[in-house]
Structure formats: C-alpha cells, structure tokens
Write a protein that binds this DNA or RNA. Structure first.
Lengths: 144, 144
DNA sequence: TCGATTCCATGATTTTTATCATATTTTAAG
DNA sequence: CTTAAAATATGATAAAAATCATGGAATCGA
C-alpha cells in the first residue's frame, strides 16, 4: 500500500508524538531503535518531515525531535503521506493511466475512486494526537 | 496502490476479455500495443496469468491469448491481483509491521482494516465481464 | 518435413527504491 | 573556546522492481 519511506515516516512521527506527550524530546538513535527501522534511512525521512513542519528538530547536545503538543491534534496522516510520497495516492489512476479522467475513465475508474476517497478521508480525519494516545494508553503498539 | 506488474496485468486481461467477447484471439504484440505496455515485460505477466488459469494461451501460428466467454463472469479482479502480487494487499499491516494483529494492533490497525476490507470487497465483486463490456460499449477506455 | 509464427523459459540489464557511509553544521556544557 | 553530542547534507552502495534480450518449444500451413 505504502512505500517503506512512508511506513517508517508514519511510525517515527507517531513515536515522536507519543514521547512529546510527556514532554520527552527524542533522538534519531532512539527513534530508529524503538520503531525498528534503519537509522540512516530514518534520518533522511525525518529531515523531510522536519522541512515540511510536521516534526520539529533541535540540533546540538540535548537536541532531537519533538512535536509541540498544541499542533499534535492538527497534524493529519494525510500530511505525512503527501510529504513523503506526493499526492499520487490521492489522485492517480488505479491502472496507472495518465490520461484517465472523469470524462475518459478507465474500466475501474469509479470503483477505484470510491476506495481512494475512503482512503483519503481516513488519512484526512486521522490526527496524531489520537494515534499517540493509543500508544500511551497501551492499546496500540509500534513494535513488540 | 498497485505495482506496474499488476497494472499491466489488469489492463491486459481486460483487453483480452474485451476481444474474446467478439471471439477474437489476440497476440502479445497486439496486446502490448493496445494497452501501451512494454512487450517483453507484458509477456512475462501473461505467462503468470496463464499459469494461474486466468487467461488461456495458444501457441503456434494463429495462436495468442483468449478468455472463454463462459468463464469471464467468474474471473474477479482479486484473482489477478493475488496471482501477480500475492495477498499482501489483503492481509498486510498498513505500517509494515509483521507482528501487527487483532490482539497486538498497530496505531492505524482498525482504520486500515476498514479500507483494506473495502478494497478487498471491491476486487472480489468486480468480474471481467462487466469490465470488458464497458470497453466494448465505449463507456470506458484502456488508452487514448 | 520445413518454415514461419507464436508463446515459453531464463537470464541480463536498467531503473527505482532502500540502505549505508562520511563529512559538515549547530549547540549545550564545561 | 574547546569538546562532544546531536541533526543535516550529500553521495555511494545494495536490493528490488521493471525492462530487455535471446534462444527454445509448440503449432499450423504448405
């Protein structure tokens, strides 16, 4: 469904958010360990997220990544996905046809549109706060 | 959403079906041209589909690919997807966690499950006959 | 039987994605 | 002001996906 980049990105963001909940700033090493992802690759992803103002980075000793509590409820999954893989998943044709459109639909256009809209709505309506609180309460998990 | 393999595979199958509607057997060259796909790559895909009894192949002069009219309504999109990319799309965790399950869910487990089920249902309920007839009637298109 | 046409099998190459490595910049602390 | 701990930037490598190429096997018509 999603690329590794996106999977790691979402996992990392949720982890950072769950730590920021209790005012914990977390570093790259810790993040990679906790979400079980390759460190250097994760670093690249975090940079992109940082540039897109989804997470906040602090350099230097005692630095790390965090997400201000106030913004947490306003960051949606859709923003993470868009930052990491563009909006192809929201707009692209299910069969990969570049000229597929409402007026010139592919055979599965309508059926795919429905699914895509559901997916888009889900990503749009899911914010970081609820995901992080699931982790905190122990109802959901990012690893073993 | 899907791999190129799957996109080409679905497009090719629909095209073969639409031709089989009027008892036309079609060859590799023609298929690749009509669905705008790389010929050799398409050949490999067709072989897989053939082995999975989704399409029927005939070797030799005048040979090609076809789909018996009788079976057309019974071949579902889900079969094509499963043959070409396995059932990861139906069962895999949205965040790529191998240990994600109902009892040990990832943060987006339920939300993704809903989408995946919708997708699975759509693929399960869409058969080749309806897709091919859309092409035939000129309501839908596989290319310009 | 022979030759042309077509699918089939397999492996090589290219492109994309994922991963790794190294050097740089920033910053807190002593 | 120096040092160590962090993020950042950039490029190299590895793995996977997509594409290409080549020879083989089956089938039909002459």
């Amino acid at each position: 469904m999603f690329s590794k980049t996106c999977e790691y990105g979402i996992r990392a963001t949720i982890f950072i958010a769950s730590e920021s909940f209790q005012n914990n700033r977390v570093g790259l090493k810790d993040i990679a360990k906790k979400i079980d992802s390759p460190e250097a690759f994760t670093a690249k992803i975090l940079q992109i997220l940082s540039k897109n103002n989804i997470i906040h980075s602090i350099k230097g000793v005692g630095g790390g990544f965090e997400i201000p509590k106030e913004t947490m409820s306003q960051i949606k999954l859709s923003q993470i996905v868009t930052a990491l893989e563009g909006n192809q998943v929201f707009t692209g044709c299910g069969l990969g046809l570049s000229h597929c459109s409402e007026e010139h639909p592919c055979p599965v256009h309508d059926k795919f549109k429905f699914i895509r809209n559901e997916l888009a709505a889900m990503l749009e309506n899911t914010n970081l706060e609820e995901l992080a609180s699931g982790i905190k309460s122990g109802d959901t998990f990012l690893r073993y």
